[in-house]
Design a binder for these strands. Structure first.
Lengths: 149, 149
DNA sequence: TATTGTTGTATAGCTTGCTATGCAAGTGCT
DNA sequence: AGCACTTGCATAGCAAGCTATACAACAATA
């Protein structure tokens, strides 16, 4: 059986991810947010003051990627980084007022985007899709030391 | 109901796409290929000598992205671009010998990556996952003028 | 035929991902 | 105390996506 892009799950996954990303980018632009900051914000909205290392482990993102993302977030006034008192290597990440205020509108935008992009699927299919992705992620996480999703 | 990343399909799709991309990147590195060239190569292996515009329409990628990708491919000896004889604006894209020779090993690498990343799913689940992604793409394509997947 | 509009590519500049590498702060051993 | 090792983060440099804009070649029309 020959290989075509329309049947390659890797290709399809990339395409689907771009669809979601394009939609979300447009929706959160008015808030002054970009997609890359979203995962970090979600963690920090839950638990402010995490270390960079903790964020990396939670998000299955390379440390260097996280450092760059945090630098942009600091530049844009979403966070400040402060050295940990008891360990001079550790940077703790704290949300600004502005970032805290964005939690409601930003998550609303993400929920809207998910709903719209998946409007072509039934409720059952949406649930299947979600579960299948969770399984794939659980089985293929980058860091073995990471907590389960 | 509150919003968490582990239930946001957009977040999960991004994560799944990164998993496939990381795997494929490693597998095709020995061939001197990168993931971004893959979609264009798949089209050109089918039909050599396409125009840039045709590639853009087939792949649901921005024209500027395609122009950049083709520039890298030309730099790396995968393609050459030649002006169309009858229309001076049009660039036709032709594979080099090297690129033609990579068809077998490259598609094998992609199939292996797909199989490995999805080994956690049953055959049925893999089929469901594929079909669901195809539906999402069909309903959310960027270009209305594009051919159906 | 000259002007005006359209079309196909290219370029500039950004984000978000990656690998590889550097470096300062902590830890442990002798 | 001094040495090597480890750990947490930063930086350099690249790929691959995007938007906005420029530009040359063609098309259409007054």
């Amino acid at each position: 059986m020959e290989f075509t892009k329309d049947h390659s799950q890797g290709y399809l996954a990339n395409h689907v991810a771009r669809i979601f990303a394009r939609g979300l980018t447009a929706r959160i632009k008015p808030l002054g947010l970009t997609t890359g900051t979203f995962p970090a914000l979600l963690e920090l909205w839950e638990t402010d003051g995490m270390t960079q290392k903790q964020l990396v482990a939670k998000l299955d993102i390379e440390q260097a990627t996280m450092a760059n993302t945090l630098a942009r977030m600091e530049r844009d006034g979403l966070i400040i980084r402060k050295k940990d008192a008891s360990d001079g290597r550790v940077q703790r990440v704290w949300l600004t007022e502005r970032a805290r205020a964005l939690r409601g509108p930003a998550t609303a935008a993400a929920m809207d985007e998910n709903a719209d992009s998946l409007a072509c699927l039934t409720e059952d299919e949406q649930q299947q899709f979600t579960t299948l992705m969770q399984k794939i992620i659980a089985a293929n996480r980058y860091r073995a030391d990471a907590p389960p999703e």
